[in-house]
Design a protein around this nucleic acid. Structure first.
Lengths: 417, 417
DNA sequence: GCGACTTTATAAAGCCCCTTTCCTAATCCC
DNA sequence: GGGATTAGGAAAGGGGCTTTATAAAGTCGC
């Protein structure tokens, strides 16, 4: 059991203030204090720290109601860059963000089915990372860090990919391999947690103490935000909701079990729902999940009856599974994220809400909202980049970066210079 | 989103130290520091506070390896009393504990099926509470508080029973009603959370950051310990695992849904498992859950084949349900608690472990242990009393109870005396 | 146009934590 | 009886956050 120290409070407050600034840039210290519940003085020192780090800048003044004008601060977008890497079964996405978390450059590497050796994956990542830095034309020194999201079970402390189901990796020292090609600080975790952190900082989970980010892609899982922070579990593998049993002795799942949620609501599961209901449907593109989901999305948006039925059938399972999460965890918000959720969008959401209402208990249901993720880009990339941002902020607390009057940003070193 | 303050750290440390003292009484400051990871100085001040509160006492010395002997402290059992109340569908249990959480007195009131009005329940509680105080012969002033566990959804802040399924209560101001009869400080919550707190302080969850306390009684639920503390959820109704779907479109549950965990592994569910497998079994006592479970427990202990089969069938459902919790939450330990678990004991545990192993993912499974609760008495009473204990400790931090040299315990008031 | 009132921002002081360090107390061993 | 050793307490130090005081920068009114 880890013990909390007063520094953790500072770190949490620093996160909170920066989050708020990114969300509502430009903003004043007053507004920040009101939004965070901190005192003006604390906000002022935190803002001072962030100014020293050149993560934010003063951008002018705002009239007050008959007094000294409020100084405004905003994210210093060009003050640094963050790289987010989303390693998936068939591709590697890399995005380079500025500090406002806008995408400045993007690169994608496709992996052929045979390519499963760690070295191959690492080299794709290195290539793409090099590419985005070059595209955006940022100096290497400005890159604050690289976050990497890799599927499966990850030990973020040691940087080891303990188990990656797609490629049958076991205890691959991924961070070490990556660090041979990439000189920036590296942060490793998995897509569930990346998605959760992305929603926590920039998405629908902002300001909520308890939230669940449901990831609907090829694989299925849930990122858990509990008590205002990410819940990792004792071996950093919490959130494997995709492999919880929903239909005992039900459909075979790729994990080897029967009746898992993923077997019904992951992209392959949805394809199976479709093919069981309408084996000859023109929507069905065997061997192409993306095409099938796309076709389904277009058809359901056009209110095509068979598509509606498939979405409804999917929502029947998904709703029951989400109701399980609501009953157990009692979260304030459930966010549907990842590409399947993004494409099926509102029609899916509507059916899911109805299905959840049939299964969840009244009180937890009443306290909960279900939404589609408002994040437009790849949430795993954004979340991975956010890990890098958190890492950059973390290091502030290490040494005493005290503001010495007008010493500016170099106060980190001895005040001799 | 609530914000943490440095006082919370102090409170958590105070809990931790007292927990440790209760668990390993008598003990030395050295041992406490080692066990809690706190510095000797901090332990010394916390021990000082607890001594001032008369919750612990100095009980002698212990030889050290050739130096000054270690001072020993132990719980001052007679320094106060705590009352735990477990309100259930058919009875009210009240136990009076000393500060070492030994039961000093016990009272039980049975409620007839028709008795469901809040006033009736309250009067049973008041009677029983009066009885235990009289039995134990403790002075009223020594009673530090009364914890009350009531089924259903509870708002512990306002003391309102928002919803109690058995009696169809809606928003009953239970705490107000109780306070008309009971003068001690009152603390209200539900049995799931009471059970979890009991395990966290005195049972199998001690020292674990993430644990799940599975409650197997007539009703079924889970108390969640996450990040070292109780997880309540946004509307204080987390843990309703009994009403998560395990068999979509399965057996009808009393909540109105189909295929809930509770419908298979609660006492009535187990009876149904039995009657479906062996409709004419002599183990079956229709209309008497307790007798049936007792008979089943005796038979399975004697290795009676039909009983074994019923337990195995039950464990098939229970194991899948627990595996769901393990996959989602990745806890260090799962504790099986409440009377059904206590009676079926080891045979159930063995079958459950096998069933869980079939469903849970390798990594979270490997990090997890499943045990039967080591708490011998009614865990809801103990947990409720623990809420009262926490309440008594909480109030320490309110005013500055500074130790002024030899001012003793009265330093709470102005030092004029 | 200048003083008074407002509002914002920073500095200082105070309080709450925990830890480290130093010193005293109490034994054991030689 | 004098070290060596271990325990316990007091003081100092380093973080944090908040409240209070002060300086800075406008607006408003006479």
């Amino acid at each position: 059991m880890k013990r909390g120290t007063s520094r953790d409070i500072r770190t949490a407050n620093r996160y909170e203030v920066l989050r708020q600034i990114i969300a509502a840039s430009p903003t004043s210290r007053q507004e920040l204090a009101a939004a965070t519940g901190l005192s003006l003085a604390t906000v002022a020192t935190l803002v001072g720290e962030l100014l020293d780090l050149r993560m934010i800048t003063e951008v002018g003044f705002e009239d007050s109601a008959g007094g000294r004008p409020r100084g405004l601060v905003a994210v210093n977008a060009s003050g640094g860059a963050l790289i987010g890497v989303d390693i998936a079964e068939t591709y590697v996405h890399v995005e380079l963000f500025d500090l406002a978390l806008n995408v400045l450059a993007r690169a994608e590497e496709n992996m052929r089915p045979g390519e499963s050796r760690p070295q191959q994956v690492v080299s794709h990542v290195a290539t793409a990372a090099g590419s985005v830095v070059a595209q955006a034309g940022v100096e290497a020194a400005r890159v604050l860090g690289v976050g990497v999201s890799v599927p499966g079970q990850v030990d973020r402390a040691t940087g080891i990919s303990e188990y990656a189901p797609n490629w049958d990796w076991h205890d691959v020292p991924l961070l070490d391999l990556l660090s041979e090609h990439i000189a920036y600080p590296l942060y490793l975790d998995n897509p569930l947690r990346a998605g959760a952190v992305a929603e926590l900082w920039f998405g629908a989970a902002r300001g909520h103490g308890d939230a669940v980010v449901v990831n609907l892609g090829t694989g299925v899982g849930a990122g858990l935000v509990l008590g205002g922070g990410l819940h990792r579990g004792v071996s950093n593998s919490a959130g494997e909701w995709g492999h919880t049993t929903l239909v005992l002795d039900g459909r075979l799942c790729r994990c080897g079990n029967h009746g898992c949620v993923e077997a019904y609501v992951g992209a392959p599961g949805i394809m199976q729902n479709l093919s069981e209901l309408f084996p000859h449907s023109p929507l069905l593109h065997p061997d192409d999940q993306t095409a099938t989901i796309d076709a389904l999305a277009i058809a359901v948006a056009a209110n095509e009856p068979t598509a509606v039925q498939v979405v409804r059938e999917t929502a029947r399972y998904l709703g029951a599974g989400i109701a399980n999460l609501i009953n157990v965890l009692n979260p304030e918000v459930v966010v549907l994220s990842s590409w399947v959720a993004a494409r099926l969008g509102e029609p899916l959401l509507k059916e899911v809400r109805e299905a959840v209402a049939r299964h969840a208990l009244k009180r937890p249901l009443a306290a909960n909202r279900i939404v589609i993720s408002p994040i437009p880009t790849d949430p795993a990339c954004l979340g991975a980049a956010t890990f890098a941002l958190e890492g950059a902020l973390q290091s502030v607390g290490q040494r005493n970066v005290r503001r010495i009057a007008s010493a500016g940003a170099r106060s980190r070193t001895a005040p001799s210079g």
